[in-house]
């Protein structure tokens, strides 16, 4: 099954709100070798002017994950997880993620390009806070292998 080119331009429903926990940020920080006190210690984060601990730059992938699940579950996508390779990733922030944020992500498919047997899918997840303000855009390019 090939990737459906009609995915281009498709927008998915927003994900359920994700409440960012202090311990989740600490857990993620340890997993990516983050040692800055602003990632780990609420008092240090507050001394720097933040409401609570600040997430590492790649933490947004946890929120983005929900949108990529939507894409894989789309019946007509033609995308099977076992054929997917992560080609590139970008995070563009309006402000850092801090503990206490309630975040929602909305996926849209920017493009589907065919390159030989492979398809390159650019998936853009726009992440906003409880007020609707933009926090970060997470963009993934997925390389989907063709049939063997």
């Amino acid at each position: 099954m090939a990737v459906n080119p009609e995915l281009t331009g498709r927008t998915f429903p927003p994900t359920a709100p994700y409440l960012v926990g202090r311990e989740k940020i600490r857990e993620f920080s340890r997993a990516v070798f983050a040692t800055n006190p602003i990632n780990l210690d609420a008092a240090a984060a507050q001394a720097a002017g933040y409401a609570d601990v600040v997430a590492p730059p790649t933490f947004a992938v946890v929120i983005q994950e929900g949108t990529l699940s939507q894409l894989l579950a789309e019946p007509d996508s033609g995308i099977e997880l076992t054929r997917v390779v992560h080609g590139s990733q970008q995070f563009s922030y309006s402000r850092p993620i801090v503990a206490g944020d309630e975040l929602t992500a909305q996926l849209s498919i920017d493009s589907v390009k065919t390159l030989g047997a492979n398809a390159m899918v650019t998936a853009v997840s726009t992440i906003t806070d409880a007020t609707g303000a933009h926090v970060v855009t997470a963009t993934s390019m997925l390389v989907v292998g063709g049939d063997n």
Binding site: V32, N36, Y50, Q90, S92, Y93
Partner: peptide
């Protein structure tokens, strides 16, 4: 990205980060 965060001293100062795998 962590050595850069440690150098600048604040993870909130990273406003864009991209890589190709």
């Amino acid at each position: 990205v962590q050595p850069v965060v440690d150098w600048i001293g604040d993870p909130g100062r990273v406003f864009d980060y991209q890589v190709k795998f």
